[in-house]
């Protein structure tokens, strides 16, 4: 009972209900085969790629910031890996290191610009998003002559980053699970995590209480850009090729997953479990519809309804979390 009561006070509450409701709707109304739906790789692969970016971006949102430049950083990670290790034939380690370093650099730029100016991070990362799109396209066309750059990664790199388990499930799913654990510890079990919550609540008070707000913000932006490059890098290793425009749909999908997961858009509230389940929910809504008898033309309608319902439930559970009514009352 205590477990259930605590669940309903947690930021993940609404996303758990949305997940259950979505699966129930697809199975009962959509006549989807439960086993086929649960064991399908499509939504899980989709979720893992989204989820790795949603974790650090979700933490940024809890801290009261936002990053949308990952929409360009995913292709940037892929292009960098493929350029260095495909076009120029350098060892894959160099290509991977190059991709992740690019993430560090862009993350630093985002973080330093956000902390040293008063410009909202949405606008700053809108700027870096566009700049990076330009750089990525230029680099691909001028240095490789094509947006699809071939890359042949060695077996060990394929095994770790681009493997298809059972010929269906991307190995990135395992990375996602590991990162859920890492970010969960970071947000919920360390002082750093407490600072993230405090910054999202009231940045000035947090700074006055001794929280190094600028350092925390910059680190979170670096995590975000590096994670996006990692997703792009894994994609290039898996598919042996790259795309320039692949990341743009991620912007909407990642932010929707985070918000469905109960993170408050204005900061200060959210959990890693919520972001994780929100990503699962969003992915099942999105990809699961093809397992049902529902006409796929209805897909956006269903996604929209689930999103709105999840937001309304989030609002309701957030209010509940405030109620002090203890067990004795």
């Amino acid at each position: 009972m205590v477990l259930i009561r605590n669940l309903f006070r947690s930021p993940a509450a609404a996303s758990v209900l949305s997940l259950v409701a979505t699966v129930a709707f697809y199975v009962l109304v959509g006549r989807a085969d439960v086993l086929a739906l649960v064991s399908a790789a499509s939504w899980l692969n989709f979720a893992a790629n989204l989820g790795i970016v949603a974790l650090p971006v979700g933490l940024l949102m809890v801290a009261g910031e936002i990053d949308i430049s990952f929409g360009a950083m995913i292709p940037a990670g892929a292009i960098t890996t493929a350029l260095l290790s495909g076009t120029y034939g350098l060892p894959i380690e160099i290509g991977m290191l190059g991709a992740l370093s690019l993430g560090v650099i862009v993350g630093l730029v985002n973080g330093i610009l956000s902390t040293s100016t008063k410009v909202p991070s949405l606008l700053i990362t809108l700027g870096t998003l566009t700049v990076m799109q330009g750089i990525v396209l230029w680099a691909a066309m001028h240095l490789a002559g094509n947006a699809s750059i071939p890359l042949q990664a060695p077996a060990w790199a394929k095994f770790l980053f681009g493997q298809l388990i059972n010929n269906s499930h991307q190995v990135i799913i395992a990375w996602w699970i590991i990162l859920v654990g890492v970010f969960g510890l970071l947000l919920h079990k360390t002082s750093f995590g407490n600072w993230i919550y405090a910054m999202g609540g009231d940045k000035t008070s947090a700074r006055n209480a001794g929280v190094p707000t600028e350092r925390v913000t910059i680190m979170l932006f670096v995590f975000s850009a590096v994670s996006a490059c990692f997703v792009g890098m894994c994609g290039a290793i898996l598919f042996n090729t790259t795309q320039v425009s692949g990341g743009m749909s991620y912007i909407f999908n990642v932010i929707a997953s985070i918000v469905v997961g109960g993170v408050l858009l204005s900061g200060g509230f959210g959990s890693v479990m919520g972001i994780f389940i929100g990503t699962l929910t969003f992915s099942i809504v999105n990809k699961g519809i093809s397992f049902t008898k529902i006409n796929p033309n209805w897909a956006n309608l269903v996604i929209g309804v689930v999103l709105v319902l999840a937001m309304v439930m989030n609002e309701y559970f957030r209010k509940r979390a405030f109620h002090y009514g203890s067990a004795s009352k």
């Binding site: 600072w195 919550y197 609540g201 008070s205 209480a209 200060g268």
Partner: peptide, 13 residues
């Protein structure tokens, strides 16, 4: 911090 728990907000920083 209204959205933080009592114990967490008490020790910020």
């Amino acid at each position: 911090f209204p959205l933080m728990s009592i114990g967490r907000s008490f020790f910020v920083g």
